[in-house]
Design a protein around this nucleic acid. Structure first.
Lengths: 99, 99
DNA sequence: TTTGACTTGTCTATTTTTGACAATATTATT
DNA sequence: AATAATATTGTCAAAAATAGACAAGTCAAA
């Protein structure tokens, strides 16, 4: 589940229009539409605004937003899988998953 | 092992000066020094030049360079670990590591 | 066929990144 | 210690990437 998809789901589950969330983020509807569609990236600050707006735990949206950026970084790369493991080992060495 | 470290190691193992590699990349020595020191990021194209220059397999440098960017993205984040797993599952679903 | 919701295309402004240059620091050599 | 060679740091302008606005388009329901 990519970030835009997740966002659309949240919006629909809450019975909201794009324009209402766009207003909350102080951007116009086309811009918001692009974020849902995945052709534009939300800013970190906007993710935090969305977390508050929907009353979520930060991790629920933030981890998906971060994953989205990793996916964009690696999707065309031949060596993405090994780079994920190297990064994991470096950042979270206690977790055996990466070994 | 971060990218700059790895690069410095390769340079020393080959008995080269910064200025020689800088010339190869067509950048000045200060710029190259910053790449080794990690305060500046090499461009993708430069990584490929380095692979050729040192006669390495692409993965040897590319995966470390990519990992470096993931690390920079996640190092200040509270939810980096879950985002790595989400990204891994999305990109490489056949690998059970992420489940 | 009009209205409302959403999407797409394009342009400009802002932000970020790159690389050059100057100055400083560190190391090696004499 | 003095000098020379190597490497690092700071700062600026140019270039590239990104964000956001606006106009115009599609699509579905009334």
């Amino acid at each position: 589940m990519r970030f835009g998809e997740q966002l659309k789901l949240l919006r629909e589950q809450n019975g909201l229009l794009q324009r209402e969330i766009a207003a909350e983020l102080k951007i116009d509807t086309p811009m918001y539409s692009k974020i849902e569609g995945g052709s534009r990236k939300a800013k970190r600050q906007q993710v935090l605004q969305l977390v508050k707006f929907f009353g979520l735990k930060e991790e629920a949206l933030m981890s998906v937003w971060l994953a989205d950026q990793i996916i964009d970084l690696l999707k065309e790369e031949k060596h993405g899988q090994s780079s994920l493991l190297i990064a994991g080992k470096d950042l979270y060495p206690h977790n055996k998953v990466w070994q």
